[in-house]
């Protein structure tokens, strides 16, 4: 697009400013992970590696990361399957109540987490009498993750149009063969993008998790919350956050690389 150099310069400056603000608190987190103060107060009084050592030795933090990954992977897989089915249905067919179904997919993310949280808590314990545990967290997370997959896949399907699938069918391919060989390859990057966002959403979810996690189910955000209340553990939480930021860059970068087009990561 043709833009005057002033406009460009203003845009560069604004973008830089926004990024600066986005990263400022993260810098604070990084610095605080070396801050000897146990209570994250500013400015730091020195430099210590004590919190890094403690985080390294913290079994609780490691276990929490493992359960968070388990929850996020499981709910992402469920969301991928259900979201794809849903978007195929809504994008390739017309039927009565279609817009209501569309709304239904969005509802779990559009309604505040605390509403989803207490509703599911009440349903699991009060109505079904299920014990809360890692499974209930997975079910809850999958429910609100469907929408991210759904949206990405739906956008892709819309752009693809149905002509390739029709051609495939005309050439004699069955429904499943067409999906496997024609539809799926085109959806791959959209699935990756939707899956990644679903994973991120689940991994950092705290409110719904609070209400659906049972005894002994400690996902990372719950561990962080618990440790912020525990004497002398707050700085360890900062270390964990720094590690998470660093570790997260890899999958995002990989996904970018694999998907090939940036559109996939919206």
């Amino acid at each position: 697009m043709i833009l005057s150099s002033t406009v460009r310069r203003v845009l560069v400056a604004l973008t830089g400013l926004v990024l600066l603000v986005m990263y400022l608190p993260l810098v604070v987190v990084v610095i605080n992970s070396f801050n000897p103060s146990r209570t994250l107060t500013w400015p730091p009084t020195g430099v210590t590696l004590e919190w890094w050592r403690r985080a390294w030795e913290s079994e609780g933090a490691r276990d929490a990361v493992v359960s968070s990954v388990e929850v996020a992977v499981a709910s992402t897989v469920i969301a991928l399957v259900l979201g794809t089915l849903m978007s195929l249905a809504l994008q390739r067919y017309r039927f009565f109540g279609k817009s209501s179904v569309n709304l239904l997919v969005i509802l779990p993310i559009a309604l505040p987490g605390i509403v989803t949280g207490i509703a599911l808590n009440n349903a699991f314990r009060g109505i079904l009498g299920i014990q809360l545990g890692i499974l209930t967290v997975i079910v809850a997370h999958a429910t609100f993750c469907i929408v991210t997959v759904f949206n990405n896949v739906q956008a892709r399907l819309r752009r693809m149009g149905g002509s390739f699938e029709e051609a495939s069918a005309d050439l004699g391919a069955g429904v499943w063969t067409t999906f496997r060989l024609v539809t799926f390859p085109q959806l791959r990057s959209a699935l990756l993008a939707g899956g990644l966002l679903a994973f991120a959403l689940s991994f950092d979810e705290i409110i719904v998790t609070t209400f659906t996690a049972g005894a002994g189910t400690t996902t990372l955000p719950i561990w962080i919350l618990n440790n912020l209340f525990r004497p002398n553990q707050a700085p360890v939480v900062n270390v964990v956050a720094v590690v998470l930021i660093l570790v997260s860059i890899l999958p995002i970068w990989l996904a970018q690389k694999l998907s090939g087009d940036t559109e996939a990561l919206r």
Partner: peptide
Amino acid sequence: SILAWPGYVEDGSND
């Protein structure tokens, strides 16, 4: 199995 305030039943997994 024990239900407790944080910090009452510590098994070394946090520190």
